[in-house]
């Protein structure tokens, strides 16, 4: 193939590398809104994703059910053990809530929304980036349903990620396991505050960083959101601490957190809109 690297081909190749570079540069900066051709592609593909994804889930669900039946006995036993405490805890919780509301009323604070209050917007996962590098899933709710960028996304087990770009009828969720668009989430564990950022793919753990060196964080503690991030409510469970180390300079502690949500099996998710105001919503209203 002597003619393969002819001048014309080389020029086309170089030109396309330049175009590629420009496109990467355009898409790497943080964008909250998609350009309209992108939105159109997203919404059109989203419709077909929905049509194909639902039957697939039913078929998978059928086989899943057979497995479930096998496990039922074991699960039932474990659940019963957990349940013995439930009634007492529930009653205690109710009493405490009542007391709390009373006290709040006395302080004339009753119309202030809590940091932990949120509205739930259920959504279905209709597609997933299949290359394993982009940790993105696509859900079937978009701008028309009131979804905004940076909202928290949870399953019944815990936090899974935040909303990335939003189009009219679909939106993408950037999972906590994504390494490129770093999720920085203000988090706490037993009133010790830090940031959850970064994912260690080797151990399958999230990194809970910037913890004060003197604080007492231990293995087994539960990490939740603190509510000091932009749009996240407080108290969403993230995971359990498995290991505590110090950072490379010895100034802060780093904890490895085993996420409580299963990122591989996402079907129903809940998008969380917090009721308390934040800097982001304030600037929008102005």
């Amino acid at each position: 193939m002597p003619s393969f690297f002819s001048n014309k081909r080389l020029i086309v190749l170089l030109a396309s590398i330049i175009v590629l570079g420009a496109l990467i540069g355009y898409s790497i900066k943080e964008r909250k809104q998609m350009a309209w051709p992108e939105q159109f592609a997203h919404d059109t593909v989203g419709l077909f994703q929905y049509i194909f994804n639902r039957p697939a889930h039913y078929v998978a669900g059928f086989f899943g059910t057979i497995q479930d039946i096998e496990n039922t006995y074991k699960e039932n036993k474990a659940l019963k053990e957990n349940l013995s405490d439930y009634a007492r805890v529930k009653q205690e919780n109710r009493d405490l809530k009542h007391d709390y509301q009373d006290l709040k009323k006395q302080m004339n604070l009753s119309d202030m929304p809590e940091l932990s209050d949120f509205k739930k917007l259920p959504a279905l996962v209709i597609g997933r980036s299949n290359d394993g590098w982009n940790q993105i899933v696509i859900v079937d709710k978009g701008e028309n349903d009131g979804i905004k960028a940076d909202m928290a996304v949870v399953t019944s087990d815990g936090l899974v990620g935040k909303i990335g770009k939003v189009s009219k009828f679909t939106s993408e969720v950037i999972l906590l396991t994504n390494t490129e668009q770093q999720n920085q989430i203000s988090a706490m564990s037993n009133h010790v505050y830090g940031m959850v950022e970064g994912y260690d793919s080797k151990h399958g753990t999230l990194l809970f960083q910037k913890i004060p060196i003197k604080s007492k964080v231990k293995k087994g503690q539960i990490v939740t959101t603190s509510g000091y991030s932009q749009l996240f409510p407080s108290g969403l469970p993230i995971g359990k601490i498995t290991r505590v180390t110090t950072d490379q300079y010895g100034l802060t502690k780093i904890a490895q957190v085993q996420p409580s949500a299963n990122f591989n099996d996402l079907n129903h998710v809940v998008i969380v809109e917090r009721t308390a105001r934040s800097a982001a919503t304030d600037s929008e209203n102005k």
């Binding site: 496109l23 898409s27 597609g127």
Partner: peptide, 12 residues
């Protein structure tokens, strides 16, 4: 466009 956050890589 649909599955990734960076445009152009797969196309190229």
């Amino acid at each position: 466009v649909v599955y990734t956050s960076i445009l152009g890589v797969y196309a190229f």
